[in-house]
Amino acid sequence: MIRKKAFMVAGTVAGIVCAIFFASGARPAHAQTVPTANAQTSAASSTDCGITPASLAQINVIENDPTLTPSQEVVQELAMRKQLIIQAITCAQSDIRSLQSLLSAVPTSTDAERSIKSQLQGRIDDASNFYLLELGKLGGAGIAGTKTIAGDVLAWREGTYVPLEGQVGDFILWAGNQQLFATAQERMTETQQAVSFIESASNNADLQSVFNAAYASFETAKNGNSAAEAGLQQSLPPDQTLVLIKQSLDALQETYQQFFKVSGIIQNLLPQ
């Protein structure tokens, strides 16, 4: 009796499992998973820090003040220069914190994304340490020393920080594209199935041709996307990586133009 009951229950459960299978298999293949594009905020290499030409002119005023003795002049000018350099570096450190928070907010889902993000985070930490070291040098510096420190920081920013900033911007943009590529891949798979089904019923040259164009441009887009990923991993100059990102997006846009055409053809073929 128990066995009979067990068979009945097993049958019912199997029915439910089948039902759930169909339900899950029938999830909306395209569930409007359009991601919100990441707002790409360019980190501020040109942030103003409250230093105006007037505040710099104070140095000139000290230099030309006839009431000051030469030693007083040196002491006051040195103090003024140090204060302004500290102000500039503090402002630059604030930029770094903004850059850090922008990067931290980027979601990662693949090993490649995590690796690039971690690499960039490490370089931002290095940048932060560089500023601390330069601030530390200010303590024992004379007027010539402060000029050297300002020149070193400026050169380092141009050679290291500005490219880093650009690379972080590229990564944020590229990471935002990945969901678009995933959605496009899903759509490509569905479209391919639909086209195959229709083609098996009756050959339609237009449909096949448009689908081939969509497929080709999507391959171009994916190649561009992979090249941009490699560019980010190899820390290529930011403008080079950006060109690759742009090319991949242009090709993806072209893919969607072809999807629109495929959709139109299929709608015409289907019974109204």
Partner: peptide, 10 residues
Amino acid sequence: STPLTVDQAL
């Protein structure tokens, strides 16, 4: 009175 950027100040 126009604020300078970090690079301009440096």
